[in-house]
Structure formats: structure tokens, C-alpha cells
Design a protein around this nucleic acid. Structure first.
Length: 559
RNA sequence: GCGCCCGUAGCUCAGCUGGAUAGAGCGCCGGACUUCGAAUCCGUAGGCCGCAGGUUCGAAUCCUGCCGGGCGCGCCA
């Protein structure tokens, strides 16, 4: 498809040049030639608006320009079946059907790599996502971020980028202390003490479970042997570890793997936070006010300055985040991508400010803001608050609707759109969920191939010029054209970091296939035709499988 | 009040970074299984693309101003 466009563009450029030389066009100036695929088939396979764009340059009506171009268009390779001028001045190109067929061979040859590219070659990119605080289980919102981050990483990696996926563990700071206190209070309660559980502590049931584990390990010794501070600190470390292990398990069940788990605490232990602050002090871009240390983010595009060290001497989350992002660039990443919940959008200017202040290029830093998930049950919103302990965990969702369906639903929307996730709906509609629609194609084709093998002893499906030449039906050409588009879909999806483009593409391809299937039989009485069709549907199977693989969704042989 | 995102069919959403007659899925209605898997297909109905201006050959898309919804605006994370 990309090659085909290139050929046509060159033919157009030649035609314009010749038209100018022979006096049919006054100006030799050439705008950028863009080719698009018209939405309506009657408008051809490709279309260019060059005549309209050139109207003001040539001082001629678009249709006249189009005529001049077509007059001088020399189809040296025989690619066009037909060309025409339409509407206000579009030039439409109809491609000779035989020119589509080699796409099938390409798909088979490249196989699992079909659609891959080298556009990101040599570029190191880090995608950081989820990074949920280890203070409670992952919920659906995290699931959406996990799906988006994971798949963006997959896609970029498929396009040649050197991708590393990272989880930033907030194992330091106040929320961890609160976690420790929460567990310790439940611990005391379970040991029969009369405690009033603080309102700002984590209320969830899982805190009891952790407290029980603490008892299992330590008995009542935390009450007797040490100060409360030590006990709370022990509980904090213990709980964070237990919860983080749970998070790892949840992500594993969701099909998400990270290359690195990066500890916030390690930034303090290694002195990186202190070193950044000292550096900023030396450069006088921090100052003291009201006993706290402020970073002049407003000098770097933020709307106001931000505190990095509180008046009680404690560093803020922002302080470690500055060190963390500097460290990302220090580790040699050319591009740094953070996937955040949209409620953190106000945080972007200060992070960008810190990146600029540290001497890095803030344009190499991108934030994917994933809008929040509205979890519903029978159209009634389900409250989700970690602290209040009311939430449906990611694990619950996976259990209820399945990993494939959950991932697919998260990726069936642009991440900037808020997502309504109705559990009852997702369960009830399990059978006409779009994910099954796509997977069904794979299973169906697998079934045909099984039949071909078992009943007709057709083992290898291979390229056969004559067999493939039998593919002439409009539905067949449409299928091939759709598959020819796939590499561009992948490329755009990587460039814009938009996984939903693939999801939608797969639904389109699936639809084309199902239509085709219902109209034409693959295993016919004509051996040659059957061979051609088998070759075609095996290509479809491969494209579907490749696309689903990028989304982290399985491609079943049977369903 | 300021900032970011959203507003497209009854519902949930796409719309290829400015193109021709705005598309899917679900839902409604009507058809197709003695034939490779009906988790499918085919067809009908359904739209001042939030509103009003502007930019130009051409706007759902870009600009401005409103209206409505979500989210932010801490020495929280």
C-alpha cells in the first residue's frame, strides 16, 4: 500500500512536470502530493486533491488542471484500470485488480512480522504506566491505564523502537505511613484492643487480611516489644510488600509485564533526590519561603512555584518525581512516555518545568492522559475509592468478564474519552462483545483450515500464481485492500500512540471477512479457486492474529 | 474564577490531523442455517456533528465566543 502510493505519486509528479513543459500548466511549482483512500468505493482506490490545491498557483479552475495532469499521466507499469476527474476536481485512480494480489504473498512471507517497521529504529523509549501506590489492590481505572500503556509499548516496539516498560513504585512518603498505621490499628483491634479506627486510614477489608498475616508472623510482639513508631513502620513495609506482590499477580493475570520496577525510596537512598535539590540550590532556581523550599517552576512555564521540601523537612512527592524524571533521561532514553490518569493533568506543567530545568528537552517527554473509568453496575455508578474501601478490583473484572474482553473494551475507545464500564452489561453481552466478533474470525478460519487438512489433505497453503489469480470477487479484493492497509494502521497507531486504531481496524477486517464468508465458499469443487481462497483466508488469519497479539488478546483456534 | 478533556443516530463510540453522499456496534423492525462454525450475514428506519460567528474552492475536523458535562487548581499523592 505504501509502495503503491509512492508509485502513483511519482507518476503524478511526472505528469505535472510534463504538463508544464508542454505548456498545459503555466507554473512548475509543485505542492505536496497527498493521496488518500476515498471512503466511497465508487471514488476509486486512491484519490488526490492536487488539482484543487494547485488552483491558486496555476490560476486555473481545478478541473482544467486535473485534465492537464491526466493528459500527461503516463501509466508506465499498467497499474491503473481507470482514472477519472470527479466532483470539484478530485482525480480518482482505480487500481488494476492484479496489483493487489502480491500483498497476500507479502503477508505470508512476513508472517508474524507483517505490519512491522523500522520507523523507530535506534530510538530508546520508556513507557511508564500503572505505577499505582502499593496501598491497595488495582481497580478498573488502573486496568485501563495498564492496557493502554502495555499496548502502546507493544506497538512502538513492533515499529522498531527500543521500548522498556516501567512501573514506578511509590514506596515512600505519607501514604505508606498511613498504610502502616491502618494495618497496625487493625492489628491491635484483632488482638482485642479497643481502638478507634482513624477516618483517614484505609478502610478496605484487605487491611484486616494483612493485619492477620502480621499476627501470623509476629504474634502480639509488636504491642509489647517496641514503640508504636517502630511497629507502624514494620507494618508499612510488610503491607507494601504484600500489596505489591498482589499487584504483580493482578498484572500478570491481565497479561502485563514490566521490564523494571523502579522504587521511589531508592531515589532517596541513592542520594539522587538530595543531589537534584542541591543542584537546583546552586543554580538558584529554588528558594526558601515560610520555612519550605520552593522550586521556581514558574520560570519554566508553570503557572506558579511548587514546594519541594516541606517546612517539616520532608521532601514532597514532586521532589522525588523531579529526580525520577531526570534519572529517566540519565538512563539514556530518547523519549519518555508517562501514562497517567486524567485527574493528574495539572501535574504536567511542573514535571515539564523540572525536565527543562534539569537541562533536558521537554519535547521528548509525553504524557498520555487516560480518562477515568466510570464503573457501572446495571447503569448505576459504583463508588470507587481506595481509602473508603469501596471498589471493584481489576481482578474482579477479569474474573467477571475475562481478560480478553476487558482488555479489548479498554482499547475500544480513544483514551481521551471517558469510559463507561458496565459490569452487568459486559457480562450479559459476553456473546456479542466486539472481542468475540474478531476472535471468531480466527476460530472460523482455523476451522476451515482444519477441514481442508482433514477432508482434503491440504496441508501446506502456498503461493500459487494461478490460484491467487482466481481471486476476483469484489469481496476478495476488498479483503486484500483492507489487509494492505494494516502496516499503515500500525505505523499511525505508533506515531500517535493510539491503540484504539488497531482495535477499530480489526473490527473492520473482521466485518469484511464475515461478509465474505457468508457470500462465498472457500472449499469449492474447483481446486484452483479453493487454493486461492485458502491462501487468502490464511492471510486474514495471520493479520488478525498479529493485531490481537499487539493488543495482548488471544487468538483462539476454537471458541 | 483559571486550566485540561469531552459534546456526532435512542445508547456506547469511530471519523484516517481540512475533502466528495458523516460511519460502526448495541437496540428497533424485516429477512437468511439439509451447504466450510448463525458468537455470523443481508436489508429498513434513525443525524441543524452542542449553539453562534470566522478562516477557504471545501469545516464534524482549524480559530474566536457562548452553553452543557467531567476532572484539576495543597507544604496530598
Amino acid at each position: 500500500m505504501i509502495e503503491m502510493k509512492q508509485i502513483i505519486k511519482e507518476l503524478i509528479i511526472e505528469a505535472v512536470k510534463k504538463a508544464n513543459e508542454q505548456g498545459d500548466l503555466p507554473s512548475s511549482e509543485l505542492p505536496v502530493v497527498t493521496l488518500e483512500e476515498p471512503k466511497i468505493e465508487a471514488h476509486g482506490d486512491f484519490s488526490t486533491n492536487i488539482a484543487m490545491v494547485m488552483a491558486s498557483i496555476q490560476k486555473m479552475p481545478p478541473r482544467k488542471i486535473a485534465e492537464a495532469i491526466l493528459k500527461h499521466l503516463e501509466d508506465t507499469v499498467g497499474i491503473f484500470e481507470k482514472t477519472e476527474i470527479a466532483g470539484p476536481g478530485f482525480v480518482n485512480f482505480f487500481i488494476n485488480k492484479s496489483f493487489w494480489l502480491p500483498v497476500l504473498r507479502t503477508i505470508h512471507q512476513e508472517d508474524t512480522r507483517y505490519g512491522a517497521s523500522e520507523t523507530g529504529k535506534g530510538i530508546k523509549v520508556q513507557v511508564e504506566f500503572v505505577s499505582a501506590n502499593p496501598t491497595g489492590p488495582l481497580h478498573v481505572g488502573h486496568g485501563r491505564g495498564a492496557a493502554v500503556g502495555d499496548v502502546v509499548g507493544n506497538i512502538m516496539s513492533f515499529c522498531g523502537y527500543d521500548v522498556k516498560k516501567e512501573y514506578y513504585v511509590n514506596d515512600s512518603g505519607r501514604q505508606i505511613k498511613t498504610l502502616g498505621l491502618s494495618v497496625f490499628m487493625r492489628y491491635k483491634e484483632l488482638l482485642g484492643e479497643n481502638v478507634e479506627f482513624p477516618g483517614d486510614c484505609y478502610q478496605g477489608e484487605y487491611i484486616y487480611d494483612i493485619a492477620k498475616s502480621v499476627i501470623g508472623k509476629k504474634g502480639s510482639s509488636l504491642l509489647e516489644a517496641c514503640e508504636e513508631k517502630t511497629a507502624v513502620s514494620y507494618c508499612a513495609g510488610f503491607a507494601a510488600k504484600v500489596i505489591l506482590d498482589g499487584i504483580r499477580k493482578d498484572l500478570d493475570a491481565f497479561g502485563v509485564e514490566f521490564d523494571t520496577w523502579y522504587s521511589e525510596q531508592s531515589l532517596f537512598d541513592s542520594g539522587k533526590v538530595a543531589s537534584v535539590i542541591n543542584d537546583f540550590r546552586d543554580r538558584k532556581i529554588v528558594y526558601e519561603k515560610d520555612g519550605a523550599l520552593w522550586f521556581k517552576t514558574s520560570d519554566f512555564g508553570d503557572e506558579k512555584d511548587r514546594v519541594v521540601v516541606r517546612s517539616n523537612g520532608q521532601a514532597t512527592y514532586f521532589a522525588s518525581d523531579i529526580a525520577y524524571h531526570q534519572d529517566k533521561f540519565d538512563r539514556g532514553f530518547d523519549r519518555v512516555v508517562d501514562v497517567w490518569g486524567a485527574d493528574h493533568h495539572g501535574y504536567i506543567p511542573r514535571i515539564k518545568a523540572s525536565i527543562a530545568a534539569a537541562g533536558n528537552d521537554k519535547d521528548r517527554f509525553d504524557v498520555i492522559l487516560v480518562q477515568l473509568v466510570n464503573l457501572l453496575r446495571d447503569a448505576v455508578p459504583v463508588a470507587m475509592s481506595t481509602r473508603a474501601g469501596e471498589f471493584v478490583t481489576l481482578q474482579d473484572v477479569i474474573n467477571e468478564v475475562g481478560r480478553d474482553a476487558a482488555r479489548f473494551i479498554f482499547l475500544t475507545r480513544h483514551y481521551e474519552s471517558p469510559l463507561d464500564f458496565d459490569l452487568e452489561l459486559a457480562k450479559k453481552k459476553a456473546n456479542d462483545n466486539p472481542v468475540y466478533y474478531v476472535q471468531y474470525v480466527h476460530a472460523r478460519i482455523s476451522s476451515i483450515l482444519r477441514k481442508a487438512r482433514e477432508e482434503r489433505s491440504i496441508g501446506d497453503v502456498i503461493w500459487n500464481e494461478d490460484a491467487v489469480a482466481m481471486l476476483k470477487a469484489p469481496e476478495e479484493i476488498r479483503l486484500i485492500k483492507t489487509m494492505a492497509r494494516y502496516p499503515e494502521v500500525i505505523r499511525d497507531s505508533a506515531q500517535f500512540m493510539e491503540p484504539h486504531r488497531i482495535t477499530f481496524y480489526l473490527m473492520t477486517l473482521a466485518s469484511s471477512f464475515h461478509s465474505y464468508y457468508n457470500k462465498h465458499k472457500v472449499l469449492t469443487d474447483e481446486t484452483l479457486l479453493s487454493a486461492g481462497r485458502l491462501y487468502l483466508i490464511l492471510a486474514v488469519k495471520k493479520v488478525i492474529r498479529n493485531g490481537l497479539a499487539l493488543l495482548g488478546v488471544s487468538a483462539p483456534e476454537k471458541m
